[in-house]
Design a protein around this nucleic acid. Structure first.
Lengths: 253, 253
DNA sequence: ATTAATCTGCTTGTCTGACAACTTTCGCTA
DNA sequence: TAGCGAAAGTTGTCAGACAAGCAGATTAAT
C-alpha cells in the first residue's frame, strides 16, 4: 500500500483520492502527457472500489487536470494555471485589497468591451441591451430589485464584442461582484438615489454604443465603473504598492 | 457572429448529464439552495445508470455548482461555480478564431498593464524589466533563444502594476501563446529579422514605462501586440485602432 | 399537552460483479 | 519483412446490494 496523504477534511473517499492525485500532478510527480495508473490499480492501491476512483477521476476531468480515452487510459492534461485561472490563486482572499484588485481587472476589461461593442454591435445586440435597460428602468420606477437586469446589461455588452473569450471572462469577473450590486438595488439604495444614478450611467453607455462612438462608450463605462466602485466602498487609498488608481489622479486635477 | 453553443463533443454520458444540470443552474431553472432531484430520479429521467449520475454530480461538485449531504440530498450552491475561468469553456477549441479571440483578450490586458506600469512602477520593477531586456538583447546579437526572456519581460511589466490579480491573469493568458514566440526566436526568426523587430518594440515599451509616460507605454504595447499578432498570423484589421483610456488623453493636454 | 425518544422510509456513499466499446500489443501468416 | 487478426487490457456503462446518515412521523415519558 503506497503512501496515501490522509487529508482530514474530505469525509468523501472520492475527494480524498482526487485530492491525492491532484497533488501528484501539482508536485510534478506526474508530468503532463503521462498516463496515470489504471482504475483497477488505483482502486487496489487506495483500497477503494473502482466506482470511487472513477468519481475521483471525474472530478479531475472537470477541473481539466486529466483527460481519458476509452480503451487507452487517463492522461495528465496539463499543470494548473495553464488551463484555468483561479482568483483564489491570484489574490489573497483575506487581504483587504483583494476586492479592489479584482475590480480593477474588471474595470480594464469592461471599459475595453464597451469600446469594442460600439464598433461591432449588431442590431440584435442592441435589442438585448435595450431589453435589459428597460427592465432596469422599470425596477427604478417601481423601486424593485434590478440586479439581474443590471448583470444582463453588462453581459449583453460583452456579447456584442463578438469575442466569446471576452464574454466569458467578463461574466466570470462580473459574477464576483454580483452581491455588490444589492446595496444599489435594495430599498435603501432606491431611497438614497443609488439605483437612479446607476441607471443614468447605464443609459449613457447604451447611447454611446448605439451611436457607435467607441471613445464615448469607453468614457461612459469608465464613469460607471468608478461610481460602482465608490458605491461598494472600494477604498483606493489602500491600494498596494502603487499609489492610486488612474481615475483618482484625474479627480485630483 | 452569433453565440457559439457548439457542444456536440460530449460522447461521455456523464458529461452530457453534468452539462445539462449545469445549464439548469446557470439559466436559473434551479435557484441556489434548491435541492436537486434524487440520483434515482435523475437516472430514470436521463435514462442512464445511477453511476453515471453520480459521476456527473461529482463533476459539478468539483466545479462548485452543487454540494451534497449524505442522507439529505444534493443542493445548488449559493455561489454557482464561477471560482475559476477556463478557456476551454470560453471558446470552441476547434474554432479557427479561438486563438484570435484569446489574443484580443491578451491585447486588452497587456496594453492596460503597460499604461498602469508607467505610473506605478518602482525602481525595482525597472531593474527586473531591464534585466529581461538585456537578456533579449543578448539573444538577438548571439542569435539564441530569447523566449524565456521575452516572457519574463511581459511578466515584469504586469508585476509593476502592483495588482496581483492582473499579474496572474497576464501570466495565464500569456502562457497560452508561449509556443507562439518560437517562430520569432528560432534560427529562421533571427534570419528574417523578426527577433530584432520584436526587440525594438520591447525597447520602446521599456523607455515609455521608465519615463512614466502612460500614453506612450500603451501605444508601444499596442504596436507590439499588433505586430506579435501579425507574426503568428492573426488578423487584427477589426481591432480597435488605438484604445486609450480618457485619463491618458487628459494627460496629453 | 408538551417534550423527548424512537421508528421508519428515503437519500447519499460505497462495494461487487458483469458486460460493452475501444485501444494496444503480439503472434501468426503470406 | 510487412500486414493482419486475435487476444489481452482499459475505460464506459449497467445492475443490484448494503451501509451511513437524514427527516418526518410515531410513540413514550413527564
Amino acid at each position: 500500500m503506497p503512501v496515501i496523504a490522509r487529508v482530514a477534511r474530505p469525509s468523501q473517499l472520492s475527494e480524498t483520492v482526487s485530492k491525492t492525485i491532484e497533488k501528484w500532478i501539482l508536485d510534478g510527480v506526474m508530468a503532463p502527457g503521462v498516463k496515470l495508473p489504471t482504475e483497477k490499480t488505483l482502486s487496489a492501491e487506495f483500497g477503494v472500489s473502482r466506482a470511487v476512483v472513477r468519481e475521483a477521476i471525474s472530478r479531475l476531468k472537470a477541473e481539466g487536470y486529466v483527460a481519458s480515452r476509452q480503451g487507452a487510459g487517463a492522461f495528465v492534461e496539463a499543470r494548473p494555471g495553464q488551463t484555468s485561472f483561479r482568483l483564489a490563486d491570484a489574490v489573497d482572499p483575506a487581504g483587504p485589497v483583494a476586492t479592489a484588485h479584482i475590480f480593477e481587472l474588471r474595470y480594464i476589461v469592461e471599459t475595453a468591451a464597451a469600446a469594442l461593442a460600439a464598433s461591432r454591435r449588431s442590431d440584435q445586440d442592441l435589442v438585448q441591451m435595450r431589453e435589459a435597460l428597460l427592465r432596469m428602468r422599470h425596477a427604478v420606477s417601481e423601486r424593485t430589485d434590478g440586479t439581474q437586469a443590471d448583470d444582463d446589461f453588462h453581459v449583453a455588452i460583452a456579447a456584442a464584442t463578438g469575442n466569446p473569450a471576452l464574454l466569458r471572462f467578463i461574466r466570470f469577473v462580473g459574477h464576483q461582484f454580483f452581491a455588490s450590486r444589492v446595496p444599489t438595488w435594495n430599498a435603501e439604495g432606491h431611497a438614497a438615489g443609488r439605483a437612479e444614478a446607476a441607471q443614468a450611467e447605464h443609459e449613457r453607455m447604451f447611447e454611446a454604443i448605439a451611436a457607435g462612438d467607441g471613445v464615448a462608450a469607453r468614457e461612459a463605462a469608465r464613469i460607471h465603473m468608478v461610481e460602482a466602485a465608490r458605491r461598494i466602498g472600494i477604498d483606493t487609498d489602500h491600494w498596494e504598492p502603487a499609489p492610486r488608481a488612474p481615475w483618482e489622479e484625474e479627480a485630483l486635477s
